[in-house]
């Protein structure tokens, strides 16, 4: 993966996505006493997905704070801490639970800097484990990132690799604005090369993960690895696809997508959220409004989740969101027949 190499760092090594997040948190907390981690069961339990792990033993209960199950309250507490000099990182145990905190995220965190004419900043980070594939059913499996990408004042990122999980989190903690990080539950145990140093991945910059000439596949989150696996199979059949990892939904890197479309003349967007009114609609419209539209040789294809709450049955759950096979078939059809 071109943007995921460790570079010259001899100490780069393979760790998991969860370890990469924990490493970023530990680095930020060691460097800056203003950084605190708060959330439900982030202390001795180590986080529902083991992300915070032993941080409470390293930084103490004053900085790794177990909260009551009060999502609205803790989101507001993060806002209050952020506007008065702290750098809170809030873990929402399952991203679905952010629905309980919408008020503070959407009405307060996103708008305070603007409403106050720039007189206060809200430098808070919200970490949100999301996505399907764990058999957790309709209230613990959603991909709601597009909701927040609709809100001016928020930044929304979705790391797909351990490298980006660390680099984007460190950028998010530095950022003077509220940043929501949609992590993926299926990715926590995946491994990748991550430098030991405190590097940053810029927010708002997509990554070209694989270069190709026949079609562009823009993917988010867990869909990136599925798109890359599909691309490998497509290559064996003589179809060359360019895979772009969007990484950041807001701000969005339209230029990287448009440049790729100008090269390949075909575009497919793959995301885990519900297809209707989602990320794919926005990217399609942005390309349709841009000069890249003139380069298109086929209609744009969107692959997203079916219009259904996530089902429990493993068979149905798998069918509800795009899989490698779906991406492979749709991309092959797009290149061979224009998507018909």
């Amino acid at each position: 993966m071109p943007n995921d190499v460790a570079g010259a760092d001899p100490a780069a090594r393979e760790i998991t996505y969860a370890e990469a997040i924990r490493e970023a948190l530990a680095t930020a907390m060691a460097d800056d006493p203003r950084v605190i981690l708060m959330g439900e069961d982030v202390g001795v339990y180590g986080g529902a997905f083991g992300v915070s792990g032993d941080l409470v033993h390293r930084f103490g209960v004053e900085r790794v704070i177990d909260t009551p199950i009060s999502e609205l309250g803790i989101a507001g507490a993060a806002v209050g801490a952020a506007i008065t000099g702290m750098r809170p990182v809030l873990e929402i145990q399952f991203s679905d639970f952010i629905t309980l905190a919408m008020e503070q995220i959407v009405n307060q965190a996103a708008k305070i800097h603007f409403m106050f004419g720039g007189k206060a900043n809200v430098p808070m980070v919200v970490r949100l484990p999301g996505g399907s594939g764990t058999g957790a059913a309709a209230q613990h499996s959603q991909s709601l990132e597009a909701w927040f990408a609709h809100v001016p004042g928020l930044k929304v990122v979705q790391p797909s690799t351990p490298h980006d999980a660390k680099g984007l989190l460190l950028s998010a903690i530095d950022d003077p604005n509220p940043v929501l990080i949609f992590e993926h539950k299926l990715l926590y145990k995946t491994r990748g090369i991550v430098p030991t140093e405190a590097f940053r991945v810029p927010i708002g910059k997509a990554a070209v993960r694989r270069e190709g000439g026949d079609a562009t596949i823009v993917a988010t989150g867990v869909m990136v690895s599925r798109a890359l696996a599909a691309a490998e199979r497509l290559a064996a059949e003589g179809i060359s696809t360019e895979v772009i990892d969007l990484r950041s939904l807001r701000p969005i890197d339209l230029e990287t997508i448009a440049a790729s479309v100008r090269k390949t003349s075909r575009l497919m967007v793959v995301y885990e959220g519900v297809k209707t009114m989602g990320i794919g609609a926005e990217i399609s419209a942005m390309i349709a409004e841009s000069d890249a539209f003139d380069y298109l040789d086929a209609p744009i294809v969107r692959l997203g989740a079916a219009d259904v709450p996530l089902p429990y049955s493993p068979k149905l759950e798998r069918a509800a969101v795009p899989q490698e096979e779906d991406i492979f078939r749709a991309a092959a059809s797009l290149v061979r027949t224009g998507g018909a």
Binding site: A77, G80, I83, T84
Partner: peptide, 17 residues
């Protein structure tokens, strides 16, 4: 009620600092 949870965070901030 929008300010109430924010006050909690301000209180945490005062205490932490």
């Amino acid at each position: 009620g929008g300010g109430l949870p924010i006050a909690v965070g301000v209180g945490m901030s005062i205490k932490a600092q």
